[in-house]
């Protein structure tokens, strides 16, 4: 089984994610030996409809270190890159401790946690 890709959001332009959590999670990823993608700010990527979000959304399993799963789901959707509900886990750095978030990100297993679609697959 292929290990899930990891995407880390640095939420660079707001203080909603505790700085120490962001730094600690980023350091854990850097120390883990795993390849990963990092973006300065997922909101900005979504507003730009950055095509790399489509690449991430459509390439197998994905773990995203960011904020609330509902927000992440619809940020990707707004970028024209709907996430696959069963293939995505969002690690919420707004509420998780750095240690818990880091453990979840580097684990081999995936625990999908996006809100289920109310009416069929999402997409814009």
């Amino acid at each position: 089984m292929t290990r899930p890709r990891v995407l880390y959001c640095h939420c660079a332009y707001a203080q909603v994610i505790p700085k120490d959590v962001k730094e600690s999670v980023l350091r854990s990823l850097c120390d883990s030996g795993l390849p990963f993608d990092a973006v300065a700010d997922l909101c900005e990527m979504s507003a730009r409809r950055d095509p790399s979000l489509k690449t991430l959304a459509g390439d197998g399993t994905l773990k995203i270190a960011a904020c609330y799963p509902r927000a992440v789901k619809w940020l990707f959707n707004a970028a024209g890159a709907p996430l696959e509900i069963q293939h995505c886990e969002v690690v919420n750095m707004r509420i998780e401790t750095a240690a818990d978030a880091s453990l979840k990100l580097v684990a081999d297993t995936l625990s999908p946690n996006l809100p289920p679609d109310k009416s069929g697959p999402s997409g814009s």
Binding site: A12, D37, A38, A40, P51, D59
Partner: peptide, 25 residues
């Protein structure tokens, strides 16, 4: 990583066989 992200760049750390989230353009 930290400095480049603070500056607004997207950054990929890739290893052997790793993938880069980009669109080819």
């Amino acid at each position: 990583m930290s400095a480049l992200l603070d500056r607004g760049y997207s950054v990929t750390r890739t290893t052997v066989g790793g993938r880069v989230a980009e669109d080819g353009e």
